[in-house]
């Protein structure tokens, strides 16, 4: 029992990934080490091409490590599974179904033995959580980008994953929708306390959401450059933390990392 209590939920051990290319093997990631505790909110930031997506793909199980391993509760990750649910960059909702049917399909696939009544209740409960109770019968094609992302989040959380993986979930949204969704995500996370791994390009987003910000060095052979703790008290309020002088201290550290110490050759 003592071993499980001290064991982190996720452990990256000397993780590396090499892609074969026509001009020879290309190392994307090299020697990534990180421990993530249960219930932590982790944001990953870095310039494009630094292997952030590759890193998360090895947690979700879509990609296999070339060296090292990722352990979930001490067990190496071999393949995708519903304990590590993904909110995909392009939403990946099935457009011929309604919002409700998308969420229901996920619950029905992961927990087929649950009584049907309960499946329906869980689906509606999670759609309500993201403010889509009334739009649950709408076809995906009838929804806006922000609403689609809400459905994707509802679908991901409805199957109660241990780890929620988000790959730049708000990148394609306008500023206002983005902030609304950040707040909703944080609220839901406060109630469910699942572990979150999220890729972002936005330092302010990371500062508002994350417990720790993982900053990646540039590729090839990218690795974790620095892990910055963000210890604003929770529940967080956007105005409050932005008034905190520490906010700018953290922001400058991140900016310095990205634009001075690990500046990218081409413009971001």
């Amino acid at each position: 029992m003592i071993t499980t209590a001290t064991q982190p939920l996720l452990r990256f051990e000397g993780l590396g990934k090499v892609y074969p290319t026509p001009t020879g093997p290309y190392p994307v990631l090299d020697n990534v080490n990180l421990q993530v505790e249960q219930g932590e909110f982790i944001c990953v930031i870095g310039h494009s091409g630094c292997g952030k997506s590759t890193l998360l793909n090895m947690v979700s199980g879509f990609s296999k490590p070339s060296s090292g391993q990722v352990l979930l509760n001490g067990v190496p990750i071999e393949k995708p599974g519903p304990d590590r649910m993904v909110v995909f960059q392009g939403y990946a909702l099935l457009p011929w179904m309604t919002a409700y049917e998308n969420v229901y399909l996920a619950i029905d696939s992961v927990k087929p033995k649950l009584p049907d009544r309960e499946k329906r209740d869980v689906a509606m409960e999670h759609l309500a959580m993201v403010g889509l109770y009334k739009a649950s019968d709408k076809k995906i094609t009838q929804l806006s980008g922000g609403m689609k992302q809400r459905v994707a989040i509802a679908r991901a959380l409805a199957i109660r994953p241990e780890v929620l993986i988000l790959d730049e979930p708000f990148g394609a949204l306008d500023a206002i929708t983005k902030e609304e969704l950040q707040e909703e995500l944080l609220q839901i996370w406060n109630t469910q306390k699942c572990t979150v791994l999220m890729i972002t390009h936005d330092i302010d987003e990371a500062l508002f959401l994350a417990d720790r910000l993982v900053m990646m060095t540039n590729g090839p052979a990218a690795s974790i450059g620095e892990v910055m703790p963000i210890d604003f008290p929770r529940p967080r309020n956007r105005e409050d933390i932005m008034e905190d002088p520490k906010y700018y201290e953290l922001r400058n550290t991140a900016l310095d990392f990205l634009y001075n110490r690990f500046a990218h050759d081409d413009m971001e």
Binding site: P80, G81, M85, A92, L94, S109
Partner: peptide, 26 residues
């Protein structure tokens, strides 16, 4: 789309479910 296949993989959909819910409609 690879996205749909990935969703089926994460949810560990059965072959039959993937067939009727994803493959045929798509």
């Amino acid at each position: 789309p690879q996205d749909y296949r990935n969703v089926a993989l994460v949810l560990q959909m059965s072959k039959g479910r993937f067939f009727s819910k994803v493959l045929i409609p798509s």
